[in-house]
Design a binder for these strands. Structure first.
Lengths: 164, 164
DNA sequence: TCTGGAAGTAAAGCATGCTTGTCTAAATGA
DNA sequence: TCATTTAGACAAGCATGCTTTACTTCCAGA
């Protein structure tokens, strides 16, 4: 009793009160789990995995090169190639020859891929509407506003991610 | 042109505007990356990995049983045992005999473990202060308020997680 | 006092998501 | 033209974080 360690443990108990950062991390984890659960329970045959989700924002609708996707996603082109293989087998994307460079290929969403993305977005929208119903639209709008402000700051903290 | 697919791709481009849910996920990912980066660059020998972070909230200061931790974290006791092994080797936690059950052991933070947690929390606090400096305290407080409201709703969506 | 179940450990295995290294074909530029 | 670089594919390997199976020790109820 009264030892250094005991006092530390007491301070630790106090510190348990969540900061905004901790709240953010926890909410996002729960939201992500719920969204994945709903997407994969969506009756469709396809499975959505985090590796897929990570690439989607970096595949442009006109088609993107593997190397470009890799650079933006911050992983090697080999890693992207593997995930693209999977998504291609599920019929979500297709590889097209790049008219500007015969070494290159363009990865592009298929119609089915676009549908899958809409479905995923609709799941997020659905959850969002449920949240609004529970906590009120004001809170959700404030959340959006704050996150929109914070996002560029967080992006600015990213390491420039030299070569890979 | 004008095909079903083309129209879908156009809609897809519109849909790219981020919802609150998407913003939340992206911000959290960036925040998490930045926090991990800073913690592991903290000069200390120890490495922080997601698996450790996942257990920490479930280790009570008085000590918790492996089985309890596993139940709350939603993984098997074997998985928890492995991570606890690692944290024990780093001197962050210790295993004590449970006075109430000679089969059981209590996992508890050591002084060093408590320090490490303080350090981790201080990193989060530091990032939070930087965010306040950039976007203003109002936004960050609104963020906290909204997340605090949303958290219990998200927790309520959790599957009851039958047996494991 | 046994008998079933729970706590923890041990070992093996597996899914995921990466990496590095190597190769071919094509572009690029001196 | 020829050397270098680049895009992508292929193969192997590895780190992480789990799981399943099997065991020992101990508790607890019939």
């Amino acid at each position: 009793m009264g030892s250094v360690k005991t006092r530390q443990l007491e301070r630790l108990a106090e510190a348990k009160q969540a900061s905004a950062a901790q709240l953010l991390l926890k909410c996002a984890r729960l939201l992500n789990e719920e969204a994945m659960r709903r997407v994969n329970a969506g009756g469709r045959g396809l499975v959505m995995r985090p590796a897929h989700a990570a690439l989607i924002p970096h595949i442009e609708f006109e088609g993107s090169r593997i190397t470009d996707i890799a650079g933006r996603a911050g992983v090697t082109k080999q890693a992207v190639g593997q995930v693209v293989d999977e998504m291609e087998q599920e019929g979500l994307v297709e590889r097209l020859p790049d008219p500007h460079d015969r070494r290159a290929k363009l990865v592009r969403f298929t119609g089915r891929g676009a549908e899958a993305i809409f479905y995923g977005l609709s799941v997020l929208g659905e959850i969002e509407r449920e949240l609004e119903r529970e906590v009120g639209r004001t809170h959700v709008r404030a959340l959006s506003a704050a996150l929109s402000a914070i996002l560029p700051v967080l992006e600015g903290m990213q390491p420039s991610d030299e070569q890979r």
